[in-house]
């Protein structure tokens, strides 16, 4: 953990070397999702609702997913940009150091400019929450936290899967964008507005549904029954990262036996 913090520090210093472009890019990261949010707002202004969901309910969903996405982009960028590490042969360097590859890859890159995006999603979150008549309980508050954490874990898991693919091929990795950028785009609306097969895929294969649908229903009071079960769904979703981690380990082993 201390090492991770050190990595953070050194990369922050690096990015501060280019201060103007740092601030401009941060501002950009603030505004780009803002136009998407503006689009969402305008659509609600015209249509009023989407399959029974009101604007602020969807805004809450939007904020949670974008928050999770920006956090994972900020902190797990090392995996997202892993292909360049492999192409340049820098991965060998990580292997001759006495630390786990996971921490080192994680520490190889941070994008602090993504804080702009994070800030934007926090503002949307506060705005949405202050306009929703939610009866807050501690379980609901914890659920909300877990939704964000679990979202970060899912996005990170996808980055790891894509990074592991680099050990076999570095071509066509953009497909992973379907699940990261595409997943974000899709998950900013509650999952049940989509066709069944999409909803199923994104619940059981890549468990976005456990972040943006089931617990969301609970927080908004659209469900009956035990809250604990809904509290558990984001935790289940977060477990997604475990197989990704194993796959990563497998990839490293493959790399070390082929050296390709």
């Amino acid at each position: 953990m201390r090492l991770y913090y050190k990595y953070l520090l050194i990369l922050f210093k690096s990015q501060m070397q280019y201060r103007t472009s740092f601030w401009l890019l941060s501002v950009g990261q603030f505004f780009i999702p803002l136009t998407i949010f503006a689009g969402l707002y305008l659509l609600f202004e015209r249509f009023g609702q989407i399959k029974g969901w009101q604007f602020f309910e969807v805004a809450l969903c939007f904020a949670i997913i974008h928050m999770a996405f920006s956090l994972s982009e900020c902190f797990a960028r090392g995996f997202d940009q892993f292909s360049s590490l492999v192409i340049k042969g820098e991965f060998d360097r990580l292997l001759v150091r006495p630390r786990s590859t996971f921490v080192q890859v994680l520490g190889s890159k941070f994008e602090f400019i993504k804080f702009g995006r994070l800030l934007q999603s926090i503002i949307v979150l506060v705005w949405a929450l202050s306009n929703l008549p939610i009866e807050w309980t501690s379980i609901k508050a914890i659920t909300l936290m877990l939704m964000i954490v679990s979202g970060v874990l899912i996005f990170t898991g996808i980055y790891m899967l894509a990074a592991t693919m680099c050990f076999w091929t570095v071509q066509g990795l953009e497909v992973a964008n379907i699940f990261t950028d595409g997943g974000r785009e899709m998950a900013q609306y509650p999952l049940n507005i989509y066709q069944k097969w999409v909803a199923r895929f994104f619940t059981y294969v890549i468990p976005f549904g456990t972040v943006n649908y089931l617990p969301l229903m609970y927080i908004l009071g659209k469900t009956q029954g035990n809250g604990i079960i809904y509290l558990l769904t984001p935790i289940a979703g977060g477990l997604f990262i475990l197989p990704c981690f194993l796959f990563w380990q497998f990839g490293v082993r493959h790399y070390r036996s082929t050296g390709s």
């Binding site: 659509l43 249509f47 009023g48 609702q49 989407i50 399959k51 029974g52 609306y189 507005i193 989509y194």
Partner: peptide
């Protein structure tokens, strides 16, 4: 998404 909006 548009389909869902248009439905209602």
């Amino acid at each position: 998404v548009f389909e869902a909006f248009y439905e209602y």
